[in-house]
Amino acid sequence: MANARALDKRRKSIRNIRKITRTMELIATARYKKSMDRAHAATAYTNQITKIVSRLAAAGLDVKHPLLEKREVTEHARVLVLSSNRGLCGGYNGNILRTAVPAIRQLRETVEDCPVDVSGKRGLNGLKFRRIKTADAYLNFEDQPAFAEVEKIADKYLSMYITGELDRLDVVYTRFISTSRQQAIVETLLPLGSLDMDSEEEEQSGVNAEYEFLPSAESILEEVVPTSFKVRLFKCFLDAAVSEQVARMIAMKGATENAGDMIKQLSMTYNRARQSQITGEIMEIIGGVEALEG
C-alpha cells in the first residue's frame, strides 16, 4: 500500500489543477459568447453586400471581374494558415496542421513558388517542427480579430493579386458549423469564384424598385468584389476565433471532469492506505501488550 501522506499530497495538487481548469473553462465560455456575438454582428454587413450584389445581378449586369476569374497558369500561390496563439485547446491546432500540411505539399507539387503565411504562434511552431518554411507570421490576433487588422492583410493580398505577384490564395482555417462541430478546411479565396456568401437569403421584398446606380453599375461592381473578398477573409478569422474558444471550452471541461474522477480514485486509495496503517499500528500495540503479559 502506498504511503498515505504522499497520496494526500497528490490529491491536493490535483484539486488545485482542477480549480485552474475550471476557471479556464469559464473564461473560454465568456470569450466564446463574445466572439459569437461579433460573428453575428458581421452578418449584418454581409447581408447588405449580398443585397447589393443581387440588385446588381437583377439589373442585368454581367458579373465579371478579374478577381473572379481563374488564371490560366498558376505560377505564384500562397497559403494562409489560421491557428491560435495559445495552447490548451484540445485538438484545435492539431486539426489545422493536419489539414494544412498535406494541402501545402500537394500545392507545392504543381506550383513552385508557394510561400506559407501563418497566424498564431502554435501554427508557426507546428510548421517549423514539420520543416515547412513560413514567410509572414501574424501574432496579433486574439479572440476578437479587428477588421482593420484583417483589412491590412487583405489589402496586401489584393495588391499582390492585381499586380500579378499572386495567382492563388488558399486559407486553412477552422470553420464553425455549430457548437458541437468545427471543421478544419482549406478554402480558395483568390480567385473568388463567385460572389455568393454563405448567408445567402433570397429576400423577396416584392417591390421591384427601379434602382439608380451611381456613378454606374460597373463602378459599383469594381468595388463590391474586393470588399466581398475582405469580408470573406474577415469571416475566416472570426470563425477561427470562435472555434478556438469552443475547442478550449470543451478541452477544459474534459480536464475538469477527469480531475474529479482522479480525485475520487485517489481518495479511495488514500482511505484504504490510512485504514491499513491504523490496523497495523493497533496490531503492534496488541502485540506489545501480549508480550508484556507473557
Binding site: 447589393i52 440588385r55 446588381l56 424598385a209 427601379e210 434602382y211 439608380e212 446606380f213 451611381l214 456613378p215 463602378s219 459599383i220 468595388e223
Partner: peptide, 19 residues
C-alpha cells in the same frame, strides 16, 4: 460622400445604390 462628389438625401428620395 459619393465616389464623385457629395450627394444629399432628403425624404422621398428615389431608390439608388451608390459607391
Amino acid at each position: 460622400p459619393m465616389y464623385d462628389g457629395e450627394l444629399g438625401v432628403l425624404n422621398g428620395r428615389a431608390p439608388f445604390i451608390g459607391r
